[in-house]
């Protein structure tokens, strides 16, 4: 009974409902390979960034600057490409830059003891601002087709987009890191009780710093994906994406107070939002319905535990 009430179970159930509804209402084209390819592309960046952000939130912190790091890395790609660098050097450089952005967040949070919410609202503006300084309001679009095709064609012989394959590989790595390693246990311990974690010998600051660096690096990778998918490097790429990613993570059942959550739930949350969006677009429904549904799901996801708790106490009180 307890397992049935788990939020992840509810998410999977909702996913099945959406898939069936999609299948029926579109005469079977919803689950076709072609449509799933576009669905996958559509959620690629959110799926990527949600992975490290899950760990950050489980550790009791938050990173609102991820979408700005995405924009900054996109702007850097355009700028360095204009400066004549080769893409083989640009891509690693951009990932390092993203990791540095994450390190700045992490150092401000761990060394100065500043709240991550305030720090990353600051760096949200700072990194987006730097992106604008680097590239202005111009767009760079003359990338070689061998790169941009990664964002527009599936892996040969399948319907899997390259970015989703990348996200899947990273999801396995992050899943192992969070759920099957001592690092992951440290992350949960910090989120549940930071002081307790420190007293049990966990290097809290170092773990948190690592998480912010990972978030920055993966956000930069998402920036690369975004740039090649639209084959356009712009400073305003991904504006406002941070709240969508946070919403996806929280919808996945991760507690905003830290210490609770699974990567599986988050992936189910990302898929659910992406599936709903795709379904509504297929049916020519305007996307404001999706906005409302996103908000409502988020509210249900936080209210559900307190409702089940209340139901539980009632049942205990009854006999």
């Amino acid at each position: 009974m307890r397992n049935l009430l788990r939020w992840e179970t509810a998410l999977v159930f909702l996913l099945v409902v959406v898939a069936l509804a999609g299948q029926v209402s579109t005469d079977g084209s919803f689950l076709s390979g072609g449509n799933l390819f576009y669905l996958g592309l559509d959620i690629a960046e959110i799926a990527l960034i949600a992975l490290p952000l899950t760990l950050v939130i489980v550790a009791g912190e938050i990173d609102l600057s991820v979408a700005s790091v995405l924009g900054l890395s996109s702007a850097l790609i355009g700028w360095l490409w204009n400066a004549g660098w080769s893409l083989e050097t640009i891509l690693p450089a951009v990932i390092v830059a993203g990791a540095l952005c994450g390190a700045v967040n992490g150092l401000l949070v761990t060394r100065l003891g500043l709240p991550s919410l305030a720090v990353t609202i600051g760096t949200l503006a700072l990194y987006r601002g730097l992106a604008l300084v680097v590239l202005g309001d111009t767009a760079v679009a003359d990338f070689p087709a061998s790169y941009t095709s990664f964002g527009t064609t599936p892996i040969p012989g399948t319907d899997i987009p390259y970015p989703i394959a990348l996200a899947a590989v990273l999801a396995v790595l992050f899943g192992i890191a969070l759920h099957a390693s001592s690092f992951g246990r440290a992350v949960f311990a910090i989120g549940a009780n930071e002081e307790g974690a420190r007293f049990s010998g966990i290097r809290v600051k170092r773990v948190k710093l690592t998480l912010f660096v990972l978030a920055g690096a993966v956000a930069a990778i998402a920036g690369i994906v975004y740039t090649f998918r639209f084959s356009s490097a712009r400073a305003d790429n991904g504006v406002g994406l941070e709240l969508a990613v946070v919403a996806a993570v929280l919808l996945g059942g991760v507690s905003i107070f830290g210490g609770k959550g699974t990567l599986f739930g988050v992936l189910a949350g990302v898929l659910l939002l992406g599936g709903l969006r795709n379904l509504l677009i297929l049916q020519d429904t305007s996307t404001e319905v999706l906005t409302i549904v996103t908000g409502l799901l988020l509210l249900v996801s936080v209210l559900a535990p307190s409702i089940t708790r209340r139901v539980g106490t009632l049942r205990k009180a009854a006999p």
């Binding site: 905003i256 107070f257 908000g295 988020l298």
Partner: peptide
């Protein structure tokens, strides 16, 4: 009354109110 974190609640209503606005 729901005893849930305000960050999540108001992130949710951020979407709901804006969606209602567009609708």
């Amino acid at each position: 009354l729901g005893n849930v974190p305000s960050l999540v609640v108001t992130l949710g209503t951020l979407y709901v109110f804006r969606g209602v606005d567009y609708a």
